[in-house]
Design a binder for these strands. Sequence first.
DNA 1: GCGGCATTTTGTAGCGCTACAATTTTTACG
DNA 2: CGTAAAAATTGTAGCGCTACAAAATGCCGC
Lengths: 339, 339
Amino acid sequence: MNSPETQNSPLGRRPTLYDVATHAGVSPSLVSLFLKDPERISEKRRGAVQKAISELGYRPSRAATTLASTRTKSIGLVIDDYRNLWFVDLLRGMESVLSNLGYQVMLADSRPGKNRIKEATDGLLAMHVDALVLAAEPSEAMLSTTWVPTVVAGWRKGVPAGADLITNDDDGGGAMAASHLLELGHVRVGHLSGADGASAHRRAGFRRAVETAGVESIISESDGTSEEDGYTAACWLLEHHPDTTAIFAANDTMALGAFAALKARGLSVPHDVSVIGYDNSPLAKSRYLDLTSVDNRSDVVGIDAAHRLLARIEDPSLQPERKLIEPTLVLRGTTSALR
Amino acid sequence: MNSPETQNSPLGRRPTLYDVATHAGVSPSLVSLFLKDPERISEKRRGAVQKAISELGYRPSRAATTLASTRTKSIGLVIDDYRNLWFVDLLRGMESVLSNLGYQVMLADSRPGKNRIKEATDGLLAMHVDALVLAAEPSEAMLSTTWVPTVVAGWRKGVPAGADLITNDDDGGGAMAASHLLELGHVRVGHLSGADGASAHRRAGFRRAVETAGVESIISESDGTSEEDGYTAACWLLEHHPDTTAIFAANDTMALGAFAALKARGLSVPHDVSVIGYDNSPLAKSRYLDLTSVDNRSDVVGIDAAHRLLARIEDPSLQPERKLIEPTLVLRGTTSALR
DNA sequence: GCGGCATTTTGTAGCGCTACAATTTTTACG
DNA sequence: CGTAAAAATTGTAGCGCTACAAAATGCCGC
């Protein structure tokens, strides 16, 4: 309707709350009240203020609001890398409880350097977030330096003092994957493992379940958890244990590497070898890949983390808590009974 | 060293710049100066301020800084969905030019509702970002309401007045994919297309190239661009044109759907049918999938967008510009010469 | 040892908003 | 109608920082 050039607003600058108040013929305080809860002012004024806001194209300044209020109604989420999609479920879980309460979730990733986690956290704290979720391995440098309620999600090492811990039961999940393969009758089962914390737990669970069943646990460990790592580990496994009939990969991406190694050897899945992954990532859900996988329920972690933070925002004296979330098994087409 | 309980700081609250100044025995202005450029103050004072900062555990308040300065040195990036990983390259491209200049990139996704794009944008503007990159289709509601330099990246419809446009040459990319298949000798080529803007351009390019070569263009169109859509479209294609020897999917995910359809029919890739995708996503790069794909060079879009914004921050009177980025073809194992 | 100039440091005045107490208006009811 | 209580509205005083001009200090040669 209006020309973009004139920008509706008669001011040559970003309109402020005072501009709105003047335009609407009320006091700034009333406009502020309107912003916080429109229901709290009379219908007559509400209309006038609303009109002034849209006529001027006013948008509140978050900076000013933040500075003037004690609470910002925002929660910071630090993730290690945008490309690790597991944070999407975490985020969705958090938002499912926080959005309705008017909270906003701010994301910061800490990809590049090692101490970027501290940087990302500092950035979030600089924005006065009311609380923090660390979905990245906390560095030593920040073990004791948070001013706000903090929960560590999905990592178990280096939890800052006073922080809650809500994480996936990777140990249980590893055992779950192993049991599934054993129940299908497999007795030559291999595990492709990575080097990080979660991998170690998955590995331990796997080993325990397999050895409890009286079966030898064959583990091929690599430095990372990428598809290439999975490929390399699977090649080693297939070379040294050619009679392997089932493979448990530490994550879905590594399972993809196993697929590549099997394909190269002319072995088919699940006819010759069953494969189970971990994370129930979009990859596993793919119709083509159709990968059986352990779902670590990051959405539940997110929901729990959110509840926990809300509680600690209300009562900062609450004692930190530690909690494990049970994974679930998602059956798909890459595992089948031993033929 | 210090107990986490005492938090180093003698104050029972978040330390401010004034606390630092007092502690260091200098004026607040000097501390502010230090924050902006440590080199600008004498060595003696610099040491004192530095010491005070770390002793108190001081972190500047972004809100206060933002409010007091005219520039915030931050750029907002609106994306449609965190799960569409193409934004990662965009982001990396932007950061490669912005980080060195001290700019920070803030992300907001607009997943859920339709007008969340406006919400996400408003949120960013509320944080006083100096400029905005819209990597999501702008809604009508916001065609004329930005106060800051804006560039639309990767979308061509609904560009707000006064915004720059830097986008991928999807039309050229479609033609590129088609030419590749034609050069390999294929004459029965099908295209799996989606319904969004980018798909339409890729389709147009494909059609033009194929028809220029005097070959019939067979297009299977679906509502979306998911793997399921790709699967459905591929099933239609294979049923109605069983002699198809090459398939161009509108994106890598749809190519995965095509794989599923081919596998179900016992056809192998690339032996029976060649497949080319689009986006050069992590999927395409996978060793197992090894998918030939068109790379739309989002990293370059990011770099260009950043340069453009910096220029417009310097000189807001600059006329908006439109620019297409040339895609490149990435050859992998899913396309081969017609046997 | 003293102008004159460059460098370093400081004081003052907001940025745009909210908290909270104080004030005005409306409503309820004897 | 009058008055107390409730509801609606307003004024005042910052939140933590930066911009910018003014003041203080250091440095030079003569």
